[in-house]
């Protein structure tokens, strides 16, 4: 419990960022001195206000962008299927039905439809959309589209799942439900997740660890370990004193990181 220093004693860091910085061509310093490790099997949350570089870190970890300073090392081959990405928008192909959207990562790996079908059926079952395999994205609700997006990210069984404020645009009820489902899925599959959010409550509910960030330049200002294992969490966790305690802690850390700014 409490603010903790970076713990380097834990084994199996999937991704490590050491003194990483990112400066854009315009001269904007997006990130400075980022030290961070993503440990196998955890849900790590990056919590901070808009513009603090949370998404930039995610892009660096995904390999979609490169740091301008520091060292980023991956303890997994960054090849097809090892990393899944869920964006703030579902980012589905509107011309393709649910099956074809989820099939995409496997299709790009060269798998045939027939061979991919069982994995797609399985992941659809897990996200509760088995009946909607032939539906097009526009025929689904916002929450269902996001489930498809998550299913697509999970279908190739990635070792690392990166989620960039995936539930930010959804209503509170749907968001709570998807948070529950995500915790359950992670417990079942053991996928390592890096989750970006600006919601204190969501970060505490989901995470094993929270990195609190501040802007101008984007930097990590605190790390909070959540002692309650996510595998034992359920909806009731939201009403426990421990949950409220961690929320207060995260909120205080945010305030200290960016006095005068709302998270």
């Amino acid at each position: 419990m409490g603010l903790a220093m970076l713990d380097t004693t834990r084994p199996r860091a999937l991704v490590t960022l050491h003194d990483v910085g990112k400066v854009y061509a315009t001269g904007t310093v997006a990130l400075a001195n980022i030290d961070l490790e993503v440990r196998s099997g955890e849900i790590l949350t990056l919590l901070g206000p808009s513009g603090c570089g949370k998404s930039t870190i995610l892009r660096l970890v995904a390999g979609l962008d490169t740091p301008t300073s520091g060292v980023l090392s991956r303890n997994h081959a960054n090849v097809r299927g090892t990393v899944g990405f869920v964006f703030q928008d579902p980012t589905l192909m509107p011309w393709a039905d649910v099956f074809d959207n989820i099939y995409l990562p496997l299709r790009l790996q060269g798998q045939s439809r027939n061979k991919a079908a069982p994995a797609i059926a399985d992941v659809l079952e897990r996200v509760g959309l088995a009946r909607f395999v032939k539906a097009f994205p526009r025929e689904l609700s916002g929450g269902m589209r996001m489930r498809v997006s998550i299913a697509r990210a999970l279908v190739s069984r990635p070792r690392l799942l990166l989620m960039d404020e995936p539930f930010a645009a959804l209503d509170e009820i749907t968001r709570f439900r998807l948070d529950d489902d995500l915790v359950a899925l992670q417990a079942e599959l053991g996928t390592t997740i890096v989750f970006v959010t600006h919601s204190v409550f969501e970060s505490v509910y989901l995470s094993s660890r929270i990195h609190v960030m501040a802007a101008h330049p984007g930097r990590i200002t605190a790390e909070i370990e959540i002692d309650t294992p996510s595998i034992r969490r359920g909806r009731e966790f939201r009403t426990t004193p421990a949950y409220l305690h961690y929320c207060r802690q995260a909120s205080d850390a945010l305030q200290r990181a960016a006095p005068g700014e709302d998270a």
Binding site: A62, D89, T91, M93, L104, L108
Partner: peptide, 12 residues
């Protein structure tokens, strides 16, 4: 869609 392009890049 830029995000879809990123996704395609990510999946190689």
């Amino acid at each position: 869609d830029r995000n879809l392009l990123d996704l395609f890049r990510l999946y190689g």
